[in-house]
Structures are given as C-alpha cells and as structure tokens.
Design a protein around this nucleic acid. Structure first.
Lengths: 146, 146
DNA sequence: TCCAAAAATAGGAATAATTCGCAAAAATTC
DNA sequence: GAATTTTTGCGAATTATTCCTATTTTTGGA
C-alpha cells in the first residue's frame, strides 16, 4: 500500500547539494553532446580522466541530476535508460535499427494538458513523445522499394 | 558495427509458431485487463493455474507476442517494462505517484508522420506519447491548494 | 493413430543493470 | 581549520533479463 501523498511543505526537504567534481563532470559531458548516453558509457567517459570514479556514483548522480531537473532520463523501447542533457521541451526519435536517439524540436498541439485535466481528470506534468522507426542513415540502408 | 539492414524478403522468415497453452494464457490475461502488468506479475498470475510455468517462458513469450504485434511493451520512466494487451493505436498516462498506467484514447494531429519524413528525413513506424503526472486518485490525495 | 521434425518448455545458471551499506574522503559552514 | 553534512568508492546484494540444454509438446504427414 502506498503512503498518502506527503504534504508539500514536508517533502523534498531542500537538502543542500555539494558541488562535486564527479557530478559536475557528468553534467558537462551530457551538456556537450547530442548523444543520449547510457549510465555505463558515461562511466567509461568519466573514467578516462578519473579512473577512481565508481559506477554507483554515476547512478547516484544521474538520479540526483534528473530529480533536480538538470538532465532527463529517457527510457527506451528495449528497456534501456539513456540520459539527455537537453532539458528544453523537446521529443525524441529513436531508431529501430541502430538505437540512436535524435532530438526533435516539434511544435505540439497547445491545450493538450488542459484538455486532459478537463476531460480525463488527469494532471499531466510531463509529456513525452517518442517516435520510433528508421533514422535517416538507416532509411538509406534499406533496399530500394521497387 | 551493425550489420547492413537485411533485405525485406530474407528477414522475418515466417517461422511456424506453435500454439502453446502458456503463450495463449499470457495473451488471454493481457487482453482481459486494463492494467499494464510487468513480466513478474504475469508470471505470478499464470502460476496460480500452472505452477510449473517458468519465468524464462514468460519473458520469451512476451517477446514473441510483442514482435508478432499481439501485445505492446511499454517502457516506463523508472526503467520498468510493462505490457499492454491493447494494440489499438492509443497512448498512455503514467502516474508519478502510484505508477499506474492508464490508456488514453486521444486524437492526435494527423500528418505528423508525413511531416517528419518531409522535414527531418525520418521514417516513423510508431509514435508513443506518454503523459505523466498524477492520476485522478492521486490528484485527489493531494493537500488542497489554498 | 503413430512418427518424425520443429518449436517450446522447465529449470537453473549466467549476465546485466541497478541499488545498498558503510567507512573514508570531500565540501561547506562558521 | 574544526565540526557538520554530503558524497564518494568499494564491494556486496538485488533485480531484471537472457541463455543453455535436456525434455516435452505441438504439428503435419504417412
């Protein structure tokens, strides 16, 4: 049984965050790329400079960053979780063949949230739209339809 | 390095599928509920009648059913994968608090696929829109905003 | 109805992904 | 720079999923 929702003033106690080298570095990497790395590949990347970094720290920091809204976790169709340093509202295109994720700046129907609340009684906080199919490169690899 | 895309006529060799009790039962359960169970809870459910069912069989069959288009795998924000017996085009609302998934029949902007192809060179096969936030029940549990 | 071939299963081992616990180290506050 | 709090590294534990293989089930044909 789930607990009753914690009152706003008691939850998310604004615990102080120290600025650590490790967390800083992860954020840096995520912000400097268009890719959507997994925890494991971030681990590899940071370890080049800081071989003592532990995998647990990577996971811990990705959680922290995500819940602070500094990054976004992207669950993929295959169950993998990837991370995105782009927190501007946007959506994704996930390639069925090479699993690459591409950011999509797509205008979306306004008023969708209002409609959900009005017609369904739901309170949406996030909308995630993932298109999947073939990216440009993989489309080009397909045998030409005759 | 990924292999070149297999030509259409060579792939998905129509391997014969036997009709097994186990797979049948999983499909039955998924079709008879609005819930979006995990592999583990399906395992529990089937084991009530068939205690010899193995978890590997559940996973194998969920994969088979999904790739045959009989069910749909729904990757959630927390990384969990849930399964959906409803394969009609629809979207989901995932509650941030109780993790329940609700199907949403929502009309979506037509021509989105065409636009993606035209403007981005992408070939979308599926569009998955997941809204998340609070479901009706969890909205009601929130302390009243003053 | 019985047989042979192919597909699927149970069961368990193996792997992968993620979380946890805790002592030591680092960051922050004063 | 000492006290306090947060974070880390490390390894162990957990969870989710896949893989392996001998056995069983299903199926289509004789």
């Amino acid at each position: 049984m789930l607990p009753v929702v914690t009152p706003i003033n008691e939850r998310a106690r604004p615990r102080r965050r120290n600025r650590t080298r490790q967390r800083q570095r992860l954020l840096e990497i995520l912000r400097s790329t268009d890719c959507h790395p997994t925890a494991a590949s971030l681990y590899e990347a940071v370890r080049v400079d800081s071989p003592r970094l532990s995998l647990g720290t990577v996971y811990r920091n990705l959680d922290v960053l995500a819940s602070d809204g500094e990054i976004e976790a992207v669950p993929c169709t295959d169950g993998a979780v990837r991370y995105d340093g782009n927190v501007e509202p946007h959506h994704h295109f996930i390639c069925d063949r090479c699993d690459e994720i591409e950011d999509l700046e797509l205008s979306l129907p306004r008023g969708l949230a209002a409609r959900l609340r009005r017609e369904h009684g739901l309170t949406p906080c996030r909308v995630r739209i993932d298109f999947s199919g073939l990216c440009r490169e993989c489309t080009d690899l397909l045998p030409n339809p005759t």
